[in-house]
Write a protein that binds this DNA or RNA. Structure first.
Length: 156
DNA sequence: GCCAACGTTGGC
DNA sequence: GCCAACGTTGGC
């Protein structure tokens, strides 16, 4: 089983939004980045676990835990001309973009903020979120980093 | 295949 | 709202 960190702008879709969905499950749609598409396709598997990270907000950081609830499959919004992430160049017989389903696991007692994570950059060396210029919306997390970050819960 | 222009991300 | 970093696009 692998671990991941997945970013979302809470104004758009937050951990609370996920928790209030039917079966607390939702499609992680709208990803239009080939690196992330390939991670969905080649590495992410149903049963993996992920941090839910809030970005572009007052207090960026990890706010909750999710389970990856499906393997990758085509993102229907790419074919929807009215959708924000419509891709006119993608054809149903040859879908360009994939998504996975995610299920709410729990919120953290207190968020582990980006500022808090930065204080532990020694122990979190190699965490892609902290790498300069890293903007990927989905990144892998090493098990040791996952466990270390969970120990920071409730400290800030 | 190069590379300039443009768009997006995301912290601050 | 600014801006740096990065990805994508498209002309050549």
């Amino acid at each position: 089983m692998a671990y991941w960190l997945m970013k979302s702008e809470p104004d758009c879709f937050s951990i609370d939004d996920l928790a209030s969905r039917p079966r607390q499950t939702e499609k992680w749609d709208g990803v239009r980045n080939y690196q992330v598409r390939n991670m969905f396709r080649d590495q992410m598997k149903q049963g993996d676990q992920a941090f839910f990270y809030h970005s572009s907000c007052a207090e960026p950081g990890i706010y909750g835990l999710m389970t990856i609830a499906s393997n990758a499959y085509p993102d229907p919004t790419q074919f929807d001309a009215k959708a924000d992430h419509y891709d006119p160049k993608s054809k149903p017989e040859e879908p360009r973009w994939l998504l996975v389903d995610v299920r709410f696991e729990r919120k953290l007692k207190t968020p582990v903020t980006l500022a808090e994570l930065r204080k532990h950059d020694k122990q979190l060396q190699g965490l892609l979120l902290l790498a300069p210029g890293s903007r990927l919306s989905v990144t892998p997390v090493k098990p040791a980093h996952w466990n270390y970050i969970l120990k920071l819960e409730g400290r800030s």
